[in-house]
């Protein structure tokens, strides 16, 4: 079965409509080769670069194992060996997630990866970390065991001191479970998704001192005429050089 043919783009009079403008903005920000590039700048050559993707796939495992736990409800893992096993997968995927998220943060710090209009990418990364901490915290509160009792009755003092305890009651299991399995996962997924889109939009940050291979280093700054096959890098995306240059 084939998809129906896509109608031609509308007339100029229709180009002011919200839908058309949103499509144009999306196409301009994320042309397919920028969203799913098959080439990366030649300076990408370190294992440090894999920490980001490991964090993302760890999050996939966190969410997947969390969904399995959700299938059978919050008390399942206390009474079933299979439930305990999935709880273990959930716990360890969270440990792996934070492990690599922090390494990713260290790596990006030492690369000063916020340079060149990538400050929002950095900020969304930090916010992902903070929201993930809240998500993990509510997970500890949702365990219905000694940990939950101790952590909630200790943490209440910090939350209450800020005033947030007036409406965010860490001793209310139902409320914390809802935050843990609905609101905070949506928050983490949204901010991580935005972070990944920004990484794709801006591309990976170039080194300090890019040398001759630089937009502006030897040319007039727009990159045109400097390198064969390179497009103007207005938003700092990774270029797609087909043949490259001589070293």
């Amino acid at each position: 079965m084939t998809a129906p043919p896509v109608p031609r783009h509308g007339r100029a009079s229709e180009s002011a409509q919200w839908t058309a403008r949103a499509r144009r903005a999306a196409e301009s920000a994320f042309p397919p080769e920028r969203l799913l590039p098959d080439r990366q700048p030649a300076y990408l050559g370190s294992w440090v670069y894999v920490f980001g993707v490991i964090s993302v796939v760890s999050l996939v495992w966190v969410i997947t194992t969390g969904c399995v736990l959700a299938l059978f409800g919050p008390t399942w893992w206390h009474t079933s060996s299979v439930g305990l096993f999935f709880n273990s997968m959930h716990l360890w995927s969270v440990e792996v997630f934070f492990f690599f998220m922090v390494l990713h943060l260290w790596g990006k710090f030492f690369m000063a990866a916020w340079r060149g209009k990538r400050r929002l990418t950095w900020a969304t990364g930090v916010i992902s970390f903070v929201v993930s901490i809240a998500a993990a915290f509510t997970g500890y509160l949702s365990q219905q065991n000694f940990d939950s009792q101790w952590i909630s009755t200790q943490a209440k003092d910090g939350i209450n001191a800020t005033g947030a305890g007036a409406f965010w009651n860490v001793l209310n299991f139902g409320q914390m479970l809802m935050w843990h399995i609905v609101l905070l996962p949506i928050g983490v997924a949204a901010i991580v998704g935005l972070h990944i889109l920004l990484v794709r939009r801006r591309g990976i940050v170039p080194p300090f001192e890019v040398g001759d291979h630089a937009d502006g280093a030897g040319g007039d700054g727009d990159g045109s005429g400097d390198v064969v096959g390179t497009t103007t890098l207005e938003v700092g995306t990774a270029p797609t050089v087909e043949r490259g240059v001589s070293a």
């Binding site: 030649a42 300076y43 291979h213 630089a214 990159g223 050089v241 490259g244």
Partner: peptide, 10 residues
């Protein structure tokens, strides 16, 4: 700031 890369890619 950065000088955006326009060198080779892999």
């Amino acid at each position: 700031d950065v000088k955006e890369w326009s060198g080779p890619s892999i």
